[in-house]
Nucleic acid binder design. Structure first.
Lengths: 101, 101
DNA sequence: CGTGTAAGGAATTCTGACACG
DNA sequence: CGTGTAAGGAATTCTGACACG
């Protein structure tokens, strides 16, 4: 379920190289609740490949002039949708198995 | 063809955390030709998830008392096998397509 | 042979702040 | 709001070497 894409192992310097974003920008997007890196014991940020992809999406939105606040709202909506879909699926599965009982 | 598993983005410190090997050991295995990290512009080593897996295999072999030299020989043999298999496949494909001409 | 360690330097990362707008 | 930058400190990484065995 958790693959390499989700493992938080990339330092901010490498994320900078991969995305072209400045470290300042990357930290700021975290401040705005758009990315959530892990922290090593000593406090350095660790990102996953998923985070890198997300940051590239954010970079594109920013270029279009979308504000971080709006990006955050959109991300919340997406999250909501995903939850609803999951609940529906769960409900159907339950109904199915209840019928077979 | 090249996935996240092959992307060299992990610093030696994180590799240490993931494998349990000391940085000294990790660098030594490189010296012996067992792993080949990339280098960032400034010279710090970058490993891939594949490298991490390889290092864990090496760690197991070492625990069994296998010397780095032998591990290297085995890796070369494996590499050879892979090449032969590829050449055979290529040959069969060629024969196949030549027949259809 | 394989690994630990101390050494000194260079590069990285962190935070909080000021700047501009 | 979003980003650059200088500041000072702490943590990371690098290399070459000595040590033990």
């Amino acid at each position: 379920m958790t693959s390499y894409k989700d493992k938080k192992v990339i330092t901010i310097g490498v994320v900078h190289e991969l995305t072209g974003l400045s470290e300042r920008q990357i930290r700021y997007y975290e401040e705005r609740g758009l990315v959530f890196p892990d922290r090593s014991k000593k406090g350095t940020r660790k990102y996953s490949f998923n985070d890198v992809e997300l940051l590239m999406d954010i970079a594109n939105k920013r270029e279009e002039g979308v504000q971080t606040y709006e990006i955050r709202q959109d991300m919340k909506k997406e999250e909501k949708k995903r939850q609803v879909r999951e609940e529906m699926l769960r409900g159907q599965l339950n109904a199915h198995f209840n019928m077979r009982k």
